[in-house]
């Protein structure tokens, strides 16, 4: 049963990367409890536009939890309080009438704020460019059984490949470290036979790019795993640490 609820929003407003931001308080009246969090923001933005206020800028794309574009820190938690849920899949029925909701952008020096809740996550693209691929000629899909992959390896690679690169791990990390993202991207290739030839080059390249982007160091709090909308395990971080050590010894 959908109901209408009234909320108070405290939203981070920031004009551009160089300006200093501040919180603005808005009343969100008559929000349908079946609305998603982003639909709630759409409604608020419409109300703001009618009042002549600049709408709140936020990132979004598929709105079905698979693209990794959306995300904000809701009441101190990346993607809000629901486990394994992206912001677009968080529904307003999880909030109570009269609640005050604080909405902030991902904060990390590796993710400079572009405007309001939008931050620049191109650091992730540069990390992928530093080795998160398999450098073989493309062509027709090979016969499925030409390279046998063990069930355990296939499952692990698929689990790691679930990462949508939203950046919630960085946002939730007390050190603003990108280890969960990078380890998921390293591991989903490094456990597969296809990833073996470039295994060492990949882990060294991606870690060094990660460090260059100004992310912090992992100190094993495991907040990232708890915040991840795809449930990526810190097992991948351990695997990346292991691969890195092995690559460093061979180098």
């Amino acid at each position: 049963m959908s109901r209408k609820i009234n909320l108070t929003l405290k939203v981070w407003r920031q004009k551009n990367a160089s300006s200093s931001g501040r919180f603005e308080t808005y009343e969100a009246k008559g929000i349908d409890t079946d609305a998603s969090f982003l639909e709630m923001l759409d409604v608020v933005n419409e109300q703001l536009e009618k009042r002549g206020v600049e709408p709140i800028a936020f990132d979004h794309d598929c709105r079905e939890g698979i693209c990794g574009m959306c995300g904000a820190v809701v009441n101190g938690m990346a993607h809000g309080p629901e486990k394994e849920t992206t912001l677009c899949q968080l529904h307003m029925r999880k909030f109570k009438d009269g609640d005050t909701i604080t909405i902030e952008p991902w904060r990390a020096n590796g993710f400079p704020i572009v405007r309001d809740l939008v931050c620049d996550r191109s650091a992730f693209d540069r990390i992928i460019s530093a080795g998160g691929f398999i450098g073989v000629r493309t062509g027709q899909a090979p016969e499925a059984h030409s390279v046998p992959v063990g069930k355990d390896k296939a499952d692990w690679a698929m689990d790691a490949a679930e990462c949508i690169g939203c950046g919630a791990c960085v946002a939730a990390c007390p050190n603003a470290s990108a280890m969960l993202f990078v380890s998921a991207k390293v591991t989903h290739l490094n456990v597969l036979p296809q990833g073996q030839p470039e295994k060492n080059k990949r882990v060294l390249g991606m870690v060094s790019q990660m460090d260059a982007e100004g992310f912090g160091n992992c100190s094993n709090h495991y907040e990232c795993e708890a915040a991840c909308p795809k449930g990526i395990s810190v097992k991948n971080i351990a695997k990346m640490n292991r691969d890195y050590l092995a690559a460093a010894i061979k180098a």
Partner: peptide, 26 residues
């Protein structure tokens, strides 16, 4: 020192955790 420079801990207006970190870790 690097972690302090990364825009890390204590940067959000609402102080909470996802339930994994604790006093000893911090």
């Amino acid at each position: 020192i690097e972690n302090r420079k990364s825009g890390g801990a204590g940067r959000y207006a609402v102080k909470t955790t996802h339930g994994e970190t604790n006093f000893a870790k911090k």
